[in-house]
Design a protein around this nucleic acid. Structure first.
Lengths: 160, 160
DNA sequence: GCTGGAATGAGAGTGATTCTCAGTCTTGCG
DNA sequence: CGCAAGACTGAGAATCACTCTCATTCCAGC
């Protein structure tokens, strides 16, 4: 991610926070900074380290940021959540999740397929009486490291 | 689900448990029975009620059943997990999740699209060095009840 | 009928997440 | 500038899903 995009993202976040009557404080800025740099969903542990925020503040600020639409909480099978920037700050993407070590990476799928999925999904939702619909497509498998035996359950992906 | 399918499912579960050296006890049978009847992922709360098992036994048995490949743990944004029968006992399907009340329903998408997704997903996974890959496609929106205002966060879907 | 391992259930323990609350920093205003 | 209102912070307690422990019970095969 380039410097310009980064500045841009910060500006957008600031605006969204303002829209819900919240300030863009230093701690929040550090959280967003960490997420910008990561380009993949980060576990709370990494965010605590990266932001140097006390646990309670980190959780509180992530909740605020999520509510402001700047950040998204990502749940996996692990027993802790991960956070990533909201798609409106990055781009629509999906996750490649290693079921052995928990590693998570971003991937995008071809636009044509994406459009197909979206069309179908919308139709199905309507049929079931659901309004609006976003989709979440995750690919779950075993990453190269885990196949090779050197697993390890690292908190963030080591080979990034 | 018909009676024959039900019997069938029980037989398959029994076989899979046997394969990992486990018995198909009454409590486990009740858990599977509840899942067969539900045809949608059930929260632990419902399973405790339906199976009349003490909490520790329910969790333990669900873990065993999952390991045997009879059951699948489904995570949503809620702070508790849901369980459903493994797809090898039912059929490949996806979930329609209401982000307001947490309600979850099963849906299937057209075979053609399913095949497309699968092909793409496999290719992407390979490119990232992932072996094998299953996909999880969830549709997240707001169900009719919640749009209408009468939400309520019921543990299972009321209007099934 | 016995015996060993599987299974059970009550209760304690764990760990992520949330809540509480008193103190601090900002912002807008006079 | 000085102040009040309210946003923000951080430490710690509380909550809650889930897991573990352990003594007891059950069952399959001998």
């Amino acid at each position: 991610m380039t410097g310009a995009e980064r500045r841009d993202a910060h500006a957008v976040v600031a605006r969204r926070l303002a829209a819900v009557g919240q300030r863009y404080t230093a701690g929040r800025r550090r959280l967003i900074g960490a997420l910008l740099a990561a380009e993949k969903p980060l576990p709370i542990g990494d965010l605590l380290t990266a932001s140097a925020l006390p646990q309670s503040s980190a959780y509180r600020n992530l909740a605020v940021l999520e509510q402001a639409g700047a950040v998204r909480r990502v749940v996996t099978d692990e027993d802790f959540a991960r956070y990533e920037l909201a798609e409106t700050l990055t781009e629509h993407h999906h996750h490649l999740i290693c079921s052995a070590c928990g590693r998570v990476e971003d991937v995008t799928i071809p636009a044509a397929l994406e459009a197909d999925v979206d069309r179908t999904v919308t139709r199905l939702a309507k049929r079931s009486g659901f309004a609006t619909v976003a989709h979440r497509l995750d690919l779950i498998g075993t990453c190269g490291d885990c196949v090779a035996g050197r697993s390890g359950r690292a908190s963030s992906g080591a080979t990034a």
